[in-house]
Simulated scan of single mutants.
Amino acid sequence: MTSSTVPAALAEIRDDFLALPQKERLTLLLEFSNELPELPERYQEHPDLFERVVECQSPVYIFVEIDDDDSVHLYATAPRESPTTRGFASILAQGLDGLSVDEVLAIPDDYPQSIGLTEAVSPLRIRGMTALLARTKRQIRARRGDAASAG
């Protein structure tokens, strides 16, 4: 994976994890789980807009919004009782926020494997984060396709 395709916010998150000893990486993941942004009010009453990420062991739902200026915003819900999954969702929600569609689509699919958690959490959980990123990209492509065909 080349660093040049990883946006600055995600590169910084990755570097923060890699700078820590293995045991402390879970603590940082827990901090991210506590920082998962709340849903904007306009989406709180619309669970129908959110897609379940079935690859995650916990019930995680995501929705991608693309602004008029092509900025991406990822919104996610995950139960507090699932700090690992919630932490992964928070990393992506914070790391992708405000990036352009092209920047998000250029993020390497193996980014979740690059942040130094493969020894700390199960491969199943890493697959869940990989699926979160893949579904985010798929939603972006679908929305961009809709916009392109509508124009």
Rank of each mutant, 00 (worst) to 15 (best):
D110Y: 03
D70F: 07
A89W: 06
L26W: 06
G87C: 06
L36H: 02
E31R: 11
D15A: 14
Y75W: 10
L26Y: 12
V72A: 03
L29N: 05
A93R: 00
H46W: 04
E55N: 09
G87V: 06
V72D: 02
R52A: 15
V53K: 00
P83V: 10
F17L: 05
I91V: 11
Y111F: 14
P83A: 07
I115Q: 00
T84C: 11
E55P: 03
P79R: 08
I91N: 00
D109C: 03
L30G: 12
G95W: 01
E51C: 09
L124P: 02
L96Q: 01
L39W: 01
I91D: 01
D70I: 04
H73F: 14
L49N: 00
E81R: 14
S100I: 06
G98V: 04
E45N: 14
R25Y: 02
R25L: 00
Q57C: 04
A78T: 06
R42I: 15
T84I: 15
P123K: 09
H46T: 09
E81Y: 13
L28E: 06
A120Y: 07
L99Q: 07
S58P: 03
A89Y: 01
L18I: 10
Y111P: 01
R86Q: 08
D67N: 12
G87Q: 08
L49G: 02
V53C: 04
S33W: 08
V101C: 03
V54Y: 12
Q44R: 11
L124H: 13
S100K: 10
N34L: 14
L18Q: 11
S114N: 11
T85Q: 11
R86K: 08
E119K: 10
L92A: 09
S71L: 07
P83K: 08
I91S: 02
D67P: 04
S122F: 06
E51T: 15
V101R: 01
S58A: 15
A93N: 00
D109N: 13
L117Q: 02
E81D: 15
A76P: 01
V121D: 02
A93M: 02
F32G: 01
E35A: 15
S58I: 10
E103D: 14
H73E: 14
D67S: 15
D70V: 07
R25G: 01
V53S: 03
D102H: 05
L39K: 03
D68Q: 13
S114R: 10
V72Q: 04
F32T: 02
T118W: 09
E35R: 15
T85Y: 12
Y61I: 05
D48S: 11
R80S: 12
D16H: 08
E119N: 13
Q57T: 11
D109R: 08
D48F: 06
D109Q: 11
E51P: 07
H46C: 07
T27M: 10
V60R: 00
Y61N: 14
T27W: 11
E65S: 12
E41H: 09
R86M: 08
P40C: 01
F63L: 12
E51N: 10
Q44V: 10
Q22P: 10
L92S: 02
L124D: 11
S82A: 15
S82L: 03
V101Y: 00
A93E: 00
R52T: 15
A89N: 04
L124E: 13
I66R: 02
F32N: 02
E24T: 13
E103V: 04
Q113V: 06
F17G: 02
V121L: 04
P112K: 01
P112G: 03
D67C: 08
R80M: 09
L117H: 01
D48M: 06
P47W: 03
S58W: 09
